[in-house]
């Protein structure tokens, strides 16, 4: 395989990763890291660097469309970024202290649990009409979006900002420590803990993951983990896929988005447990 074949084939796979990532609010690292390590036999460190690039590409590519279509909750997203960026920076310091194997097992179990809670909520997507959450009321994090699949405007209230912030801190921490899982914790935090509608959770997660990833991208660049010949096709392909995927989300029913998300979450959780138990 020559470099040209490598670039073209990886770009095609990245388009698929971008579509999937933008639809369910994940960074596409779920696809990129295993493809690079198992299929192309690329060093794991370089694969993680490419995954960070893929996260930022998914986020910026999809969020441009989601923000314009008012699918993203800008206020809630920017508010919760307090916790994700703080988590990402503290995670960069904890890398030397915590054993990675323990983290993989712990994170795997957390994701298994959140895939279960997301699955259990599959029939109930009724947005809340009242909120007594003082933080959400003070910052006015509530919102409304137009759902093209149901052809109506759906207003919703936000609750549970405290558990939401705690989960977002964990999401930032984990993404800095393991280079993955940016959106895998963000979507359940907003969907299950804060009761944002599923599509809004996905779009807002997309909006946020770019910032979380950017907080640790500097470290990856300096450590020499961002290889241009891997990053170029990943960035270009994912951007194309995410731009396309962002057009799809509105038209798909919430239930489908949730189902796809749960399946991907189960896959990641098994992947994490495998890495922790049989490294």
């Amino acid at each position: 395989m020559t470099p040209l074949d490598f670039v073209l084939s990886l770009a095609l796979i990245s388009v698929a990763a971008g579509v999937l990532g933008s639809l369910i609010g994940l960074g596409g690292g779920v696809v990129i890291v295993p493809v690079l390590t198992l299929l192309y036999h690329v060093d794991i460190r370089l694969a993680i660097g490419a995954s960070i690039v893929s996260v930022i590409a998914t986020s910026s590519g999809a969020a441009a469309a989601y923000v314009r279509e008012r699918m993203t909750n800008l206020r809630a997203g920017m508010f919760l970024e307090i916790a994700t960026t703080t988590g990402a920076v503290s995670g960069a310091y904890l890398t030397t202290v915590l054993p990675t194997r323990f983290l993989f097992v712990f994170f795997g179990l957390v994701l298994a649990y959140s895939s279960f809670t997301t699955f259990r909520r599959r029939h109930a997507d009724q947005p809340l009409a009242v909120s007594h959450d003082r933080i959400a009321n003070y910052f006015n994090l509530h919102g409304s979006y137009y759902d093209p699949a149901e052809q109506r405007e759906i207003p919703y209230k936000v609750v549970g900002t405290k558990p939401g912030l705690a989960l977002m801190y964990a999401a930032g921490l984990v993404s800095a420590l393991l280079g993955i899982g940016s959106g895998a914790l963000k979507v359940p935090a907003m969907d299950s803990a804060m009761h944002l509608p599923m599509k809004v959770s996905s779009a807002t997660s997309n909006f946020m993951i770019g910032v979380t990833a950017a907080a640790s991208a500097g470290v990856y660049f300096i450590r020499g983990q961002i290889d241009p010949i891997i990053a170029a096709p990943v960035a270009a392909g994912v951007l194309l896929g995410a731009t396309f995927g962002a057009r799809v989300l509105g038209r798909v029913p919430s239930k489908t988005v949730r189902t796809v998300f749960v399946i991907v979450l189960v896959v990641i959780s098994l992947e994490m447990l495998q890495k922790g138990i049989f490294p």
């Binding site: 930022i56 986020s59 970024e81 770019g210 660049f221 241009p228 960035a235």
Partner: peptide, 16 residues
């Protein structure tokens, strides 16, 4: 290419 990737990394920072 690396310059282009850095522009991509800075995009969310600009957004904030």
């Amino acid at each position: 290419i690396v310059l282009g990737v850095l522009i991509l990394i800075l995009t969310p920072v600009m957004r904030v």
